[in-house]
Simulated scan of single mutants.
Amino acid sequence: MTPDLILPHDGVLPHFASRPVWCGRGSTVIGAATIGAQAWIGDGGVIRADGQSVVLGDRFWLGHRSTVHIATFTHGTTVGDRVTVGRNAVVHACQVGSDVVIADDVVILDGAQVDDGVVIEAGATVFPRAHLPGGFVYAGSPAKPQRPITLAEVAERAERLREAAGDGAPAAPADEPEVEESVFVARTARLRGRIALGAGATILFSCELQAEIGPIVVGADTNIQDNSVLRSRGEGIVIGRDTTIGHNVRMGDCRIGARSLIGIGCAIAPGTVIADDAMLAAGATTDPGQLLEGGHLWGGRPARILAPLDADKRSMMSRIVEGYCEHGREYRRLQAELP
């Protein structure tokens, strides 16, 4: 069994030590990824090594709609043996040891190091460059140690998490929206309803855009990254141009301005308005109807102002947009070559 979609990056295809035990619907593996024996990849699971390498050890389990990715210019991702990742989690540009359990909705961020024999509880965020020593259960945002844990307990938690995963929800039939040639929509993305995609927009792997009630409008050169889910239930979703929606974002009816960035694993409540030139840190949430002013870095649950949006952050946001425009052009070419 192989993933639904395998693509090279810079001419390099993924390498599997052996045929995976299971690959779910819409699963995707890209680029310089090395995956150990007895891997299990759930529905919508995405492993992307497009710029740095991803190395995953033996008996790696990736839950439904979870994402493993890299930081293009700085960090790859390395994961040890017997690591279990739950549903809707993100393992991003970090190092994870062996015998680790990463529960549902966890986000691990760039440069973090997770040692052997760790459990990270559901919904936790491991901040950039954090170090989680082995032998503990961690929870919270940022993730902090809660109590010691033995390897036997880690193995039991892994087994329970895998048993709880069950089958993924049946995928709704997708529409094929008419898009201009500069737009990239991944073959494993699912779009339904009234959706307008601006020139150069990029909709990445295993995303879901559901606009059967209210419309979804995505601005020019905006990217929506792997496993993000946008559901309009009324007034619709409007996203400005040159904006980044990170991996595994959940979003209801809202307005997001131009040149903004919504970080990995954020949850945007219905009625939220995010102004132009705003950045929402990974793992943050908004309250219904909340207004996020431009020119600031926001974070927390619910989001609050953390700092002014300085020149370095603005430059980083611009580089991400440019990089994803390039990714979109390349993936569009590669996808067109597939049978």
Rank of each mutant, 00 (worst) to 15 (best):
I102T: 06
A103G: 05
D105K: 08
D105H: 13
I108D: 01
A112K: 00
V114K: 00
D116S: 07
V118N: 02
I120C: 03
A122K: 09
G123N: 10
T125P: 02
R129N: 10
A130W: 01
H131C: 09
L132E: 05
G134C: 08
V137S: 07
V137I: 15
V137T: 13
G140A: 14
G140R: 03
P142R: 06
P142F: 12
K144A: 15
K144E: 14
P145L: 10
P145Q: 10
Q146T: 06
L151W: 09
A152L: 08
V154S: 10
V154T: 06
A155D: 11
E156W: 08
L161R: 04
D167M: 08
D167F: 11
G168T: 08
P170Y: 12
P170D: 14
A171S: 12
A171C: 05
P173V: 14
P173G: 12
A174L: 10
D175V: 04
D175K: 09
P177N: 12
P177L: 07
P177I: 04
E181R: 11
E181A: 15
E181Y: 07
V185S: 02
R187A: 10
A189D: 00
R190N: 07
G193H: 05
A196N: 03
L197D: 01
I203A: 04
L204F: 11
F205Y: 12
C207L: 05
C207E: 01
N227Q: 12
N227G: 13
